[in-house]
Write a protein that binds this DNA or RNA. Structure first.
Lengths: 146, 146
DNA sequence: CTACATGCAAAGAGTTTGCATCCGC
DNA sequence: GCGGATGCAAACTCTTTGCATGTAG
């Protein structure tokens, strides 16, 4: 299926897990998303190709892929977690509370903070997708009271 | 009821809202928590004093108090939001994924990042309680594969 | 052939909503 | 007394779980 990332099949097998069609379909669906996908979106993409696949399998597989570090998981506050294919450098998100727009923060910007926390508090930050909420360039200034 | 924070009654009335016994009880319960409380914990504290108060009222009131900025809300990943009385300087949290311990990050540590994001990306961060997940001093080094 | 993975259906947690009643102002 | 606030119960969303069946290795 030519995923852009490295040999996920070998990774699964090396850890003693099986490579099933469902796992491949779900991984494909995450890649198709080009960005963040909710479990429901992933389920729908998979379901379009393979109607027999169950929601529970999607949830179980997303946990599984996240544990194998094949996907990133983030809570962008939309009610569901969102998942994204791993492999590129980590990046983080700014979520506008007014218009809902999501923009990225380069890891470079955040790196210093994580390092400082490691140094000063002895805590290793493992958040792979940080989400910060606030007002984007277009919406700030429009939101007086709230 | 001598809350440590400023005149919440006037604030509510100024915005055209009513000061009800439920709202006072819920505010009290948040203060008693001394830290983060889930809606359920708050409900239980209120319910002990006033069994007639309903869960729905707790949820509605927490939203209400958050909108008035009388309480902070944070998602520490425990399944429920957590609420804390506002008024002190903002602070943020490190949540250990191994032992569950929660420690604080001084706002000072995070401030630089928020400022940088405002400067470089034109985005005003409004996250009042940031939560970062990872491994605390005691747990790092213990967690090889995962 | 055996243990891991899946499908199904049901349960579970946390939260929200419609509507009649209540009560603060 | 008017309109916001509450209680109640039901619904709703997202996710998890038990168990029988299926299948990868």
């Amino acid at each position: 299926m030519a995923h852009q990332h490295r040999d996920y099949e070998a990774l699964m097998r090396r850890h003693g897990f099986r490579v099933t069609p469902q796992r491949q379909l779900i991984l494909d669906a995450i890649c198709e998303g080009e960005g963040h996908s909710t479990p429901e979106q992933i389920y729908e993409r998979v379901h379009a190709k393979a109607p027999a696949v169950n929601r529970a399998t999607v949830y179980r597989t997303l946990d599984f892929l996240h544990e194998l570090r094949l996907v990133f998981a983030a809570d962008l506050g939309g009610g569901s977690m969102v998942y994204e294919i791993a492999g590129d450098k980590p990046h983080h998100h700014l979520v506008c509370q007014s218009c809902g727009k999501v923009e990225e923060i380069p890891h470079q910007t955040v790196k210093g903070l994580f390092a400082r926390i490691g140094r000063e508090q002895g805590f290793t930050v493992k958040t792979d997708h940080l989400a910060l909420f606030g007002l984007c360039r277009d919406c700030r200034g429009e939101d007086p009271g709230s």
